[in-house]
Nucleic acid binder design. Structure first.
Lengths: 183, 183
DNA sequence: TCCTTAAAGCAATTGTGTTTGCGTTATGGA
DNA sequence: TCCATAACGCAAACACAATTGCTTTAAGGA
């Protein structure tokens, strides 16, 4: 599981070159044309690589897209840790909004949504893990649960990204946090 | 625009039979296999119809799916109108949860999400219109705006439908309304 | 430096979605 | 009942994605 985007052996050589150029091609093309109109031959051409290589290494384009969508916002980046839950959640939400203001990431999210549900991998599971860390830090007296953070902070942002992308703005994050944590 | 699912002429005859069988086939197949694995030839076979007919009449499968997804929950159904905003929103939200508890509708929503954004048709625009009616009815003194209803009632439900369908339960609607309208 | 082999390239083939021209059916009005 | 025509069925042609066997390249250890 996790990132099969990492070559098993011989990192840094030709394999790595193919890997990064294919990844870049997928990101560019999904943003340009939308998930629906991206195929492996098209990706291969943009990457300057033979389609066969892509088929053999990944086989399933959707899996690759899910993987990219899941790990493009680095799950190991430092989380805000000011000691104030409100401030931390606000900054964290701002990061997410900024991330999805990039059309590439928005398109990848929509691509992920199409194949979500069932038992498939969820490209937002890292968000939940992060929310969990921050709520845990606040301890017993946290005014919110993880589920509430997902429902009232992550969900509205994701909803806007997918269905109403033009409504995402600078203060989307803050106004959502204001609703989540009454002063 | 709107429902091109209605035959232009000669309703009730062979055309209507094709229409309903194709529509049923799309609903069944999207639920069974997910949007990604549904094609026009497959739909045509299930419907007992020639693929050519589907191509000529609809051409674009995604458009048909969006159309079905948009109008499957009748936008002309009566809205709750008890005089109490909280009660109305609760019942309305419950209807939506029930609707999307049906795997067919959940799959259609995911299919719609894939092609949302940009300038395409949004399969949830009727939800916003409904929310608008109920908030308007509450008049000047409404404790919530339409945007807030979308952000904190519709968005969490939709998010769960798409990414965490197993978390939808009987009291999802009521607990969301409780957060939206502090007592 | 040489040698092994994982990984990429190439080309031919197969499978399937889409288009198109034409014949057939049957609806709904005359 | 008959007729005009909208809509469907059929089959061939087409376009392109996916598969497969084989060759070639180059990474990395001996």
């Amino acid at each position: 599981m996790s990132t099969n985007t990492t070559p098993a052996k011989r990192p840094g050589g030709r394999s790595a070159a193919v890997l990064t150029s294919v990844k870049n091609a997928v990101e560019e093309l999904v943003a340009e044309r939308g998930r629906e109109r991206v195929t492996i031959p098209i990706v291969a051409e943009r990457a300057g690589v033979n389609p066969t290589s892509v088929y053999r290494r990944w086989g399933d384009l959707q899996t690759m897209i899910n993987d990219i969508a899941t790990y493009r916002l680095d799950p190991n980046r430092p989380l805000p840790e000011s000691g104030d839950l409100r401030a931390d959640l606000t900054q964290w939400a701002r990061e997410i909004v900024t991330h999805y203001s990039n059309p590439v990431n928005a398109a990848l999210l929509r691509g992920g949504a199409a194949s979500a549900g069932e038992s498939e991998s969820d490209c937002l599971r890292n968000r939940r893990a992060e929310a969990n860390i921050m709520v845990e830090r606040a301890g017993e007296r946290s005014p919110v649960t993880v589920d509430e953070v997902i429902d009232h902070l992550v969900a509205p942002i994701v909803y806007r990204v997918i269905f109403l992308p033009w409504t995402l703005s600078e203060d989307t994050a803050t106004s959502l946090v204001d609703r989540l944590l009454p002063e």
